[in-house]
């Protein structure tokens, strides 16, 4: 029983990380039709900036961690906004070239991280509370899991509220549904492209700081590993659907944890789930809707 609870909550924590990456991917794809291969690089930058900042302020203190979270998210947002403005925008409406540019950006940034921070993982520690465990129904669950889940839920709720109740959100939702019509109505959708990229980058940067706590290390390849599962989550959830991504993140991560523990083949389970969904429902669990 305690093992089941532990695996369940750990799986939810992993799902939370997947969601933080997949939410941005899904929105970006839904609105712009761009598959962002550099999204993992945004996450890694958030993790490294968070690591550097918390080291400067004090890695094991709460203020240090809080600053790391904020600056990590900001770093993710900044690099995402810059890459949208400098690399994606010049290739407007040329989706394949846009994908290729993000692939190139992913190569360049990972190489740069390796040059700056080295190829080996750097092991880190956060506030003492994160390293401790809380007893839930007899299972000793590491506290960083709760933090990841809480952050992902907050991001989901925040994004849904933003999309449903603000004018920008309205434009984004309309853009996902029918971009040509929004443009025809005289709204500059391109401004919301930058916005969506920035939001996605911020979520990824936040995910980077949390992922480094979850796994206990930062490395140049942190983002790349998560990105592949985030892709799987995005496709299963339905491209462009935020709630679909949230649902799929849980449906992928929890079985993955169980399969890893009992069979040792968790990563294969995720791929099998993808194959299954594609055979039954090629458009994913939920269609293209922003919220």
């Amino acid at each position: 029983m305690s093992i089941t609870v532990l695996l369940l909550i750990t799986g939810l924590g992993l799902g939370a990380l997947y969601f933080l990456v997949a939410s941005g991917l899904s929105l970006i794809y839904g609105l712009m039709g761009v598959l962002n291969f550099a999204h993992g690089a945004f996450l890694t930058l958030g993790a490294f900036i968070g690591f550097e900042v918390s080291r400067a302020v004090g890695a094991t203190t709460w203020p240090g961690f809080a600053v790391a979270v904020v600056l990590g998210a900001l770093a993710g947002a900044a690099i995402a906004a810059l890459s949208e403005l400098l690399l994606i925008r010049p290739l407007y409406q040329r989706h394949i070239e846009q994908v290729l540019v993000t692939v190139g950006l992913g190569l360049v940034t990972v190489a740069l991280y390796e040059g700056i921070w080295g190829t080996d993982p750097i092991f880190i520690s956060g506030p003492a509370w994160l390293d401790r465990t809380t007893s839930v129904l007899g299972a000793n669950v590491p506290n960083d899991r709760f933090l990841a889940i809480g952050a992902a839920v907050a991001v989901l709720v925040g994004l849904v509220l933003f999309l449903k109740h603000t004018r920008y959100g309205l434009v984004i939702r309309a853009g996902v549904e029918n971009r040509a019509m929004v443009t025809a109505l005289g709204i500059d959708v391109r401004r919301s492209f930058t916005l969506v990229f920035t939001i996605g980058g911020a979520a990824a940067g936040l995910g980077g700081v949390l992922a480094s706590q979850y796994f206990g290390y930062v490395s140049a390849h942190l983002g790349g590993t998560l990105l592949i599962f985030a892709f799987i989550v995005t496709v299963i959830g339905g491209l462009g659907s935020l709630t679909g991504a949230a649902l799929a993140a849980v449906l992928v991560a929890v079985p993955q944890q169980f399969a890893n523990y009992y069979l040792g083949i968790g990563d294969l389970i995720a791929v099998l789930a993808l194959a299954l969904v594609l055979l039954v429902r090629p458009s994913g669990l939920m269609g293209a809707k922003a919220a």
Binding site: L87, L91, E97, L100, V101, V103, G104, L105, G106, L107, V108, V110, A111, L112, E114, G115
Partner: peptide, 14 residues
């Protein structure tokens, strides 16, 4: 980092 140079070259070509 060879990949940095190659990646930059790639982005420029695209």
């Amino acid at each position: 980092e060879p990949l940095f140079t190659l990646g930059t070259l790639f982005v420029l070509v695209v």
